[in-house]
């Protein structure tokens, strides 16, 4: 575990906590894309299947449980919570996220480390995570009312992936040259998607 990865995990955790706080404290999810939250829940479920089969470390297992439960809690709030669900602007959140799921799945069938169920699910989750933010970015640019908690949420998500890129560079030079090209390429795409958001966010 290097500092970049730890910082990345912490900013990722913080982004989810900021969103949970916003929804819980304001009892509102205006400006938040439910589709992005559903995609993230699928990402975590597909990637953390090994939660019960492979024990890597207490940290790893605890964080997986936290990410799965928090993303499920956010989706539950936006779908079921009587007060919060009313503030979800359905007609604004129009991105056809099914297309993202299908594209990620097809990519995972073609590009994976081994053609096994586990590896295909893992690659699927990596590809899907790279594009999961799109519905949220569309909502932000359409809405123009980037309320600061949602803006901060996206900012921390971008920072998390940027730290992971530093982590991969660090690991490449210190731990030998394992091929992590699936993570590297999709991580770059993901961080690239945030670049234009950061452009708008800082120029706002």
């Amino acid at each position: 575990m290097n500092a970049f990865r730890f910082l990345g995990d912490m900013t990722h955790l913080f982004s989810v906590l900021v969103l949970l706080l916003k929804i819980y404290a304001t009892k509102s999810c205006s400006g938040v894309s439910r589709k992005t939250q559903e995609l993230y829940m699928v990402v975590f479920l597909a990637r953390y299947m090994d939660l019960f089969t492979d024990y890597i470390s207490l940290y790893n297992s605890v964080m997986k449980v936290v990410f799965i439960t928090s993303s499920a809690a956010i989706v539950w709030c936006m779908r079921r919570h009587p007060q919060v669900r009313r503030t979800y602007d359905k007609e604004q959140d129009t991105f056809r996220h099914v297309v993202l799921v299908a594209a990620a799945f097809v990519l995972a069938l073609i590009f994976n480390e081994r053609f096994t169920f586990r590896e295909i699910c893992w690659a699927f989750s990596i590809y899907l995570e790279a594009v999961a933010i799109l519905p949220q970015l569309v909502l932000l640019q359409r809405g123009r009312n980037v309320d600061n908690l949602t803006g901060q949420y996206v900012f921390f998500l971008g920072a998390y992936r940027a730290f992971y890129i530093l982590n991969w560079i660090y690991r490449y030079f210190t731990e030998g040259h394992h091929s992590r090209w699936i993570s590297w390429l999709s991580g770059l795409v993901q961080t690239g998607l945030y670049a234009d958001f950061f452009y708008y966010y800082f120029l706002r």
């Binding site: 990865r5 995990d9 990722h12 990637r47 090994d50 492979d54 890597i56 470390s57 790893n60 964080m63 997986k64 990410f67 480390e113 893992w122 992971y164 982590n167 030998g176 394992h178 993570s183």
Partner: peptide, 10 residues
Amino acid sequence: APADNVKDEL
């Protein structure tokens, strides 16, 4: 070697 592709990242 299994070590090199253990998915130890979140």
